[in-house]
Design a protein around this nucleic acid. Structure first.
Lengths: 211, 211
DNA sequence: TCATAACGATACGCAACCGTATCGTTGACC
DNA sequence: GGTCAACGATACGGTTGCGTATCGTTATGA
């Protein structure tokens, strides 16, 4: 049940009550993490919030840490990769999804608790790293493709550029506590995304269209 | 003692034992925050770590929250503003200090706990916001001066650029858990800092010297 | 030298949560 | 319709931390 390698049990559960219990419990864990954080989360508070008996939780997980790990693993954030439009618009499209994810998703609510828990436990850290890296890769790949097709200067480092784009949102969420303007994603892209290299040197906007 | 408006008591303490107690206790709080986080921090663990009696803590603070707030307020991170060299080198100098702060300072150790505590309590959030904003302002001002003196394109937004530069480091510390390469600051600057606008259009590096 | 106050240590009752065990109920499957 | 497993509720002893009170010790400043 807590095997890190099996998010979903390979063999289907016979009794649907098991799956139902697991689901409401893990949902309650995420709510509790957002409400009180990792340190203050207790098995009893999760049981109360989920409306299940404490014994049901201990039937499926050995303790708080394994429970929280499993809950974090259920976090999903599907990414829609824009396939039409110019590079600038596609990057804006991706970054708008990141802004939503960082501002008002379940993940956003749990982020401080996740950061805190990851600092204490290596397995939670792996879960978070994987979650972050998967979404980061989408943006990095988009930028790398653009680089190879000549839409970005040859000196561009796709990873640093991607981290810079996302980092603006992250910093404002975690350190400055500013509500994220819906237009911020576009502004950030216009500020940080280099203009495509001119085939022949001539005058023109050095950046992607400055909004 | 816990007045938010008075980091240092206006009137000097008569008894040096008071100041000494306060100091060792606040140091112990920061250590404890780095070691176990905010949720798991207890008054008793702080007392044990500081080598003082529990009563001494309750003599000076009403509870855990006020204690942690005061401890966070003691966080200092003086910033040396480089005044010589080209813009690129000055920004690199600043960003290297940020990298150090984010990677291996007392602040870095407490950052997850601080983020977590700030999410739950408005006063902690204010402390963190002020701490972040003060250091951010140094970089923003540097960039704004450069902008006004024509060392940056007129379309540059100093705040977004600053957040992007710092955001790369923050994201890698908090989400990707990568050790920060000492050369990363320079690489980030060379990737994200726009080249000064050419007075007359002519061929040349579009960016600050690429490494 | 002396009065004072901050100190460390310790003990207290109280509350919360731990993880386990028990038990009657209920829903699933044959 | 009968069997059985998962369920919720509840109680348990044990542990930990709370915040307060007390007390003898010790450093300070008059």
């Amino acid at each position: 049940m807590v095997d890190a390698g099996a998010v979903r049990p390979a063999v289907a559960e016979q009794d649907p009550r098991v799956e139902r219990s697991r689901r409401v419990i893990l949902e309650a864990v995420l709510e509790e993490l957002g409400a009180v954080g990792y340190g203050a989360l207790t098995i009893e508070s999760v049981a109360a919030r989920a409306g299940v008996g404490k014994s049901t939780i201990y039937r499926h997980w050995p303790g708080k840490l394994a429970l929280v790990e499993d809950a974090f693993r259920t976090l999903k954030a599907p990414v829609m990769v824009p396939e039409t439009g110019c590079l600038r618009d596609r990057v804006v499209g991706l970054l708008e999804q990141v802004a939503l994810l960082v501002e008002e998703s379940t993940y956003s609510a749990c982020m401080p608790a996740l950061i805190e828990a990851a600092e204490r436990d290596a397995q939670v850290r792996d879960v978070h790293r994987r979650f972050s890296a998967e979404r980061r890769a989408v943006l990095v790949d988009l930028l790398r493709d653009a680089l190879e097709s000549g839409e970005l200067p040859a000196t561009t480092d796709p990873e640093i550029l991607a981290d810079g784009l996302v980092g603006v949102l992250l910093l404002r969420r975690l350190m400055l506590y500013e509500p994220l303007d819906p237009a911020l994603a576009a502004t950030v892209v216009d500020q940080l995304l280099p203009a495509p290299p001119a085939r022949r040197p001539r005058k023109g906007p050095r950046r992607a269209a400055a909004r």
